[in-house]
Simulated scan of single mutants.
Amino acid sequence: MLPDLNRLRVFYHVYSLQSINMAAKNLHLTQPGVSQHIKKLEFEIKTPLFIRRHKKIIPTWAADKLFAMVKPFMETLGSEIKNISKPMDHPYGLLRIGAPLEFGKTYFPAICQAFRKKYNQVTFKIRLEEPDQLLDMLNKGILDFVVIDYFSAKDQFFGRPEQYKIDSLAEETFILASSKEYFENMMGKNISFETLMSMDFITDEHEPFILKHWFWHYFKKSISKFNIIMAIESHQALLNCVRLGMGLAITADHLIWNEIETGKIVPIFPTKEKVLNKISLVQLRDKKATLTEETFQTFFKKQIKAKENLK
């Protein structure tokens, strides 16, 4: 049996505010009334939710888990209930979208701004995370759809691609990037396997998976160790390290297109066959998209295609 929904609503406010007194004021209830709701909820789910200290409450592990389940529902309900009486013939309301960090930072601000010029009743909540985290949030209903990059559906979707609707948006080329000075002075313009393996590398991954993939693609050699002189979580910081001539790093060509064109950055291609990374829009196959989702997705695809054609 599900817990009383009104008690879950009270719990949501208590947890969010970390205060029974403040929750009581927000809900226009008495403090004892709020406390009684929490006690009854704890009885229903048969576990304590808060540890009481003097003038302070501390959420338990069970409270953290319950809040993670309740939060998406409460926040979606709060943002959508005001729109429930509006006509359904035009886009409106909140879109919850996920994307990789650099792709999201590069494309979403301008595209969302352009979309809102046409449909100003649409708002956005954008999550920028790793693909596996985005898929997890999609599966849990936290996101409406996601844009992810991956080498292959088999690798990325954990053997279950059939549960997703996957629409290809674009392909980006992964390059091993070097500053012009590093390429000329440190490498002597030599891109042999032996020379590359003696160079310094920068990565923004905990495990240099993409770097390993790049070397396997071109040299069919499995590399267990690189001379990584810096691991940094920001891709923009990684690119700055390349610009400074600290070493070599993997990036997508479109992120530094102008610098490649002007010769400031040298893309290294040991052979003509390039490493391609697919960008796709992914949603759950059994979820019916709303008019707002469909309209934005169509708009988004056109915007990405237009940007690709400008390269």
Score class of each variant (00 low, 15 high):
Lys71Phe: 03
Gly247Glu: 00
Arg53Met: 13
Phe73Glu: 04
Glu233Gln: 08
Leu134Val: 11
Lys117Gly: 12
Asn277Asp: 13
His217Arg: 04
Ser168Leu: 09
Lys278Arg: 12
Thr271Val: 06
Ser178Met: 01
Gln156Val: 11
Lys272Met: 05
Ile260Tyr: 05
His235Arg: 11
Gln163Ile: 15
Lys311Met: 14
Met137Pro: 00
Trp216Asp: 05
Ile111Phe: 06
Gly78Glu: 08
His213Asn: 09
Arg52Met: 11
Lys212Leu: 02
Ile51Ser: 09
Ile97Ser: 01
Thr106Gly: 01
Asn21Ala: 15
Leu101Asp: 11
Ile304Gly: 03
Gln113Gly: 01
Ile81Gly: 01
Asn120Lys: 10
Tyr12Glu: 08
Met22Thr: 09
Ser152His: 07
His235Asn: 13
Ala237Asp: 13
Arg7Gly: 05
Asn185Thr: 04
Glu259Gly: 05
Thr292Pro: 03
Phe151His: 14
Tyr107Thr: 03
Leu8Trp: 03
Ile111Gly: 02
His254Met: 08
Lys25Val: 13
Thr76Ser: 10
Asp149Gln: 15
Ile148Met: 08
His37Cys: 10
Pro100Lys: 04
Val70Met: 03
Pro161Val: 14
Asn227Met: 03
Leu143Tyr: 04
Ile175Met: 08
Asp4Ile: 11
Phe299Thr: 05
Arg243Lys: 10
Ile142Lys: 10
Ile256Met: 09
Arg53Gln: 14
Glu261Trp: 07
Arg160Thr: 15
Asn240Arg: 09
Gln36Asp: 10
Gln31His: 08
Phe43Asp: 11
Ser179Met: 01
Phe296Thr: 02
Pro32Phe: 03
Val10Pro: 00
Lys220Arg: 13
Glu171Asn: 10
Asp200Val: 01
Glu75Lys: 13
Thr203Val: 14
Asp64Tyr: 12
Met230Phe: 07
Ile175Asn: 04
